[in-house]
Write a protein that binds this DNA or RNA. Structure first.
Lengths: 231, 231
DNA sequence: AATATAGTGTGTCAAATTTACACCATTAAA
DNA sequence: TTTAATGGTGTAAATTTGACACACTATATT
């Protein structure tokens, strides 16, 4: 949003809450602003929507420019349209969340200068953000918290191959509560969309855990009735 | 949306899916368009957002101008931003749903000429709508279908005093499936937010049913943990 | 080689919730 | 008084959820 405001009436922007999971913590990507207003504050990455791109495309473009990543799970979750949410003029913003595999094979590197100073921040220890971005974050966090149980959100945040303990630790981070190990495993495996691999965790100094993969085809088969209930 | 498009870049509008429940059917309010494009087509009521009003206020204003009603349950549910969704230029629209008591005490009468020809249409028998309004409707319908179970949506659509059979019939209309009478009642009453009145249904030619009221205070007490999970 | 350390992987039982299911009661109209 | 229409009610089986503890395995350390 550090772009100069055009002179015509209202401006339309996208703001992204980019979630990642690392070291047992849920994190979001924040940038440090170089310009007024809110110079030196932390903010959600965001940008203005171009004339000739859909808002979904705009969200993907902005994410790409910031992280070099494409084809991530992105989802619009709310539009913020208070008159004075931006001190320099009327800016209506559509907020998206994106889910990233921080430990995935692809690297996160900004393509533009815009994201020079983008860093991951644990969601449990966020400072007050610029504009109404704290509220946007809260809304987005609540959204994925709720969707965790009926959309395959978790598997977008984990590496392709993961252990059940990692999966549980992600659920605990998002839901912010401890879960029972045996019950969690029983439940997850009962769905039938986790594929057990013939492979084990590597590089740990204790008994290595089995690795699993998310089987998207089975998932959609199982939940095809609910599929169209979301947007 | 029959307003002339301004000449600056993008236009911002609100479209409303206005739900009502009548004669055991879920219905939405549609207008017949007088102007091109989509002259004579049915469309969702919608309007352009003014410079100095928040989108929530715009939604309330538009609803008021169309129905004469205020203080209804309204909720933004999705923003539609395809480049070519409006044939005359770039129009991004925030979609809201509104819930109306068709049989309620207040009357539905349009305040502006805009809604001269607004009629209720059963959701199960809708023609193709103007623009992308069919898609907007579907998305909104799915939204309330999902929310029915964790937000007090049903009671916004029923008269203040209602019978359990009416409540069940509303659930069946929204979820599009039959429910078991005894199990439905047991469950609903077990929540504890329905207040049994000393009053009975009137004007029916069969045994009159007990009337109930929704106790919002008890509801929020019971579900206060979930409350902040939505927006 | 022995031991310490750290996390893996597993089953049962009680409680709570969900589901299936049928008949008598009441009212007004004929 | 009979008919038509809907109101109102309980129980038992099946399923799901929740609580709970210990032996196993791989590596690192001594």
């Amino acid at each position: 949003m550090e772009v100069k405001l055009p002179t015509f009436n209202s401006v339309f922007s996208i703001d992204c809450v980019i979630f990642g999971f690392e070291a047992g913590e849920l994190k979001i990507l924040l940038i440090e602003r170089n310009e007024e207003p809110f110079k030196d504050w932390l903010a959600l990455p965001g940008y203005i929507v171009e004339q000739d791109e859909s808002i979904d495309n705009a969200a993907e473009r902005i994410l790409y420019e910031l992280t070099g990543l494409r084809d991530l799970h992105m989802q619009q979750f709310h539009t913020f349209g208070e008159v004075n949410r931006h001190p320099q003029g009327r800016v209506i913003t559509v907020a998206y969340y994106a889910l990233i595999r921080i430990n995935g094979q692809k690297e996160v590197k900004p393509v533009t200068q815009y994201a020079k100073n983008a860093f991951w921040h644990p969601v449990n220890d966020l400072p007050k953000l610029a504009f109404d971005h704290s509220e946007i974050f809260e809304t987005g966090f609540n959204k994925i918290r709720r969707r965790l149980n009926y959309q395959p959100i978790a598997f977008e945040l984990l590496p392709e191959k993961f252990t059940l303990t990692q999966l549980q630790s992600l659920y605990e981070a998002v839901l912010n509560k401890k879960l029972d190990k045996r019950n969690f495993r029983k439940k997850m495996l009962s769905y039938g969309f986790l594929k057990e691999l013939d492979e084990k965790q590597k590089g740990v100094s204790y008994r290595a855990a089995k690795l699993y993969k998310f089987d998207r085809r089975k998932y959609t088969k199982i939940f095809q009735n609910d599929l169209n209930l979301d947007k």
